[in-house]
Design a protein around this nucleic acid. Structure first.
Lengths: 347, 347
DNA sequence: CTGTTAGCGCTTTCAT
DNA sequence: ATGAAAGCGCTAACAG
């Protein structure tokens, strides 16, 4: 494997000149530059990453910390990773994956102390996250995909849940729906302060009020069985409901079963819209679910971008951290049914 | 950040002694060992990964090469990655992700020449893969999740498609089915020599023959529409079929729709089994699909393990590279229907 | 514009 | 059983 030394000799220049030529870190005459690059080409030279990192104190390696064994991984998480990896490469960085227990700052410290990475990207942060606290304390560069309670000064990006919920409700309202249910994650998840759950819950209340329509919220575990039960108890209490927006894609099979059991059809009798679930998954239903598809790849990219901005000493763009989901029509939403078909009560 | 030098001074030994103590690379008196580790503890010392790698010529970093934009990524790919990352960590390695165009050996060379990684794990190899050829040629350590045409001397691991197909067919046969259809990927995919498609196709023919039952094979694009069409044309020709095994999970919604359209029920009128798809996805159907769940995490782990075995100069265990899928009963398979219910022809 | 040289933090001969 | 010192391949002062 050729080293910089080899290149220098072949180009008849000193070792440092080669270094400067490569890094463009000081002016080089066009002539010698040519010679150097020619030599590099001929030798098939590539700078040694470790040596470069050791000498410059910048490894050009980033870490993506992603929590193992928290909530079930989906296709969305893969897309975070792919987005992040792609963007890292685009910006000339490597990306290492650290599967970490969330909230374990000790382990994080040990990893960082190895001096392997210039910065880390956090996923699935808690509202009060120890890792965030630790990184802040030691002033280690990091960015977040997600959000904390206090985000001042943080480089983060997240889904715009407010906007997502608004788009979902507006879509339904445009179809004539005025009695809408929102099926959130399980109550424990909300109580634990899980961001997406908290934010959509708040947004739903606000938007419903704003638009002057009727909304009811339910919590549901991520299983078909829970979806089934939730749907039935929901309709026992609020038979006027004509549309459901749900966060939890795993509850859909159950809800669909419950709907089928009473001989109803989607979307003729009831509209269903999935919040923040990938079109791939949405297409596994019949009919394919209308969904608000999360900008997963973009979030992964942006997470890396925000981190690299800091590393390069550039001002971190803080204006547009929130990305909207994209409405993908799937056939599970349609005009509000005529209520005459079912008994009516007031909510 | 404390260095080895700091530790040495604090323990009143030379720098090299600290190194030897850490690496256990030569005998150290118990007394000084104690002192050294105490000093390390007190200083919160961690060896610097880059420096260590540069000096030892072993970075303890592995690369997972995974193809972007080939076939749609699913939850399976995520599990490969997680498995690989977990195992790497367990073995004291870091894992970097390289999103690569498949079959681009040039790019691979450039990455390897950076000297960052000790070895690479390949995913989604082609039967004749340029990356494999290149790595072989330069004798760079690597392992494969998947298989090539010629695997002699290769450290690979893969799904045991033969066994998987056998398990699927046997499950159906035990339920009384004797007329079974196998829905493979699209014909182009088979013709391109995509391993899973080729191997399941061969296995199906063999097993059907072996068991003396009737089998018919169909090709299907990965869309609901294609699933719908495939099912209908299949039954126009072979109305006796009572069970379908399908590779392509994306075709299921369409098949289910076609089944519903003719007023049939699953599994009373027809049994459905999904080959090599994750239970998560299988649960998105109604009823949840019976599936043969791929050992994704295990494959990721094994891929890394095989690589590290080489790096450690240990003999690479080559006896059990093929892992079976796990049968997960889901309610889409049941006893063969009584054929009296539908018109009968001979296949 | 170019060369010389002192490290970066560690491993590993070679001595003792 | 321990130390001294020569690198690993590169960057970045410091000198011209």
């Amino acid at each position: 494997m050729p080293t910089m030394h080899d290149v220098a000799r072949r180009a008849n220049v000193s070792l440092s000149t080669v270094s400067y030529a490569i890094n463009g870190t000081r002016p080089i005459s066009e002539e010698t530059r040519q010679r150097i690059f020619a030599a590099m080409e001929e030798l098939g030279y590539r700078p040694h990453a470790l040596a470069r990192g050791l000498a410059s104190k910048r490894s050009r390696i980033l870490a993506l910390l992603f929590p193992t064994s928290e909530r079930g991984m989906g296709t969305t998480d893969l897309e975070f990773i792919i987005g992040a990896a792609d963007m890292a490469r685009e910006l000339g960085y490597h990306l290492v994956l650290w599967t970490s227990d969330i909230n374990d700052a000790v382990e994080l410290r040990q990893l960082i102390q190895q001096g392997l990475v210039d910065g880390v990207v956090l996923m699935e942060v808690h509202l009060n996250d120890r890792r965030v606290a630790y990184l802040r304390e030691i002033e280690f560069p990091f960015s977040i995909i997600g959000r904390c309670a206090d985000n001042t000064g943080l480089a983060y990006t997240d889904i715009d849940f407010e906007q997502t919920m608004r788009d979902a409700v507006l879509h339904l309202v445009e179809l004539g729906h005025t009695d809408i249910a929102f099926v959130n994650y399980a109550r424990e998840v909300l109580d634990a302060g899980y961001g997406p759950s908290v934010r959509t819950a708040e947004a739903f209340e606000r938007i419903v009020q704003e638009l002057g329509i009727r909304g009811v919220t339910r919590f549901c575990h991520p299983t078909a069985q829970a979806g089934y039960t939730t749907f039935n108890t929901l309709f026992a209490e609020y038979p006027n409901i004509t549309a459901i927006a749900a966060m939890n894609e795993r509850s859909f099979p159950g809800m669909l079963q419950a709907i089928a059991d009473r001989g109803w059809c989607v979307p003729e009798d009831i509209s269903l819209i999935s919040l923040v679930s990938s079109p791939d998954v949405a297409e596994m239903s019949m009919p394919p679910l209308t969904t608000l598809a999360p900008p997963s790849t973009e979030l992964g990219k942006l997470g890396v971008e925000l981190l690299v901005q800091q590393l390069d000493g550039r001002p971190v763009s803080t204006q547009q951290p929130l990305l909207p989901c994209r409405l993908v029509l799937g056939g599970s939403t349609g005009p509000r049914r005529h209520l005459t078909a079912h008994p009516q009560h007031d909510a």
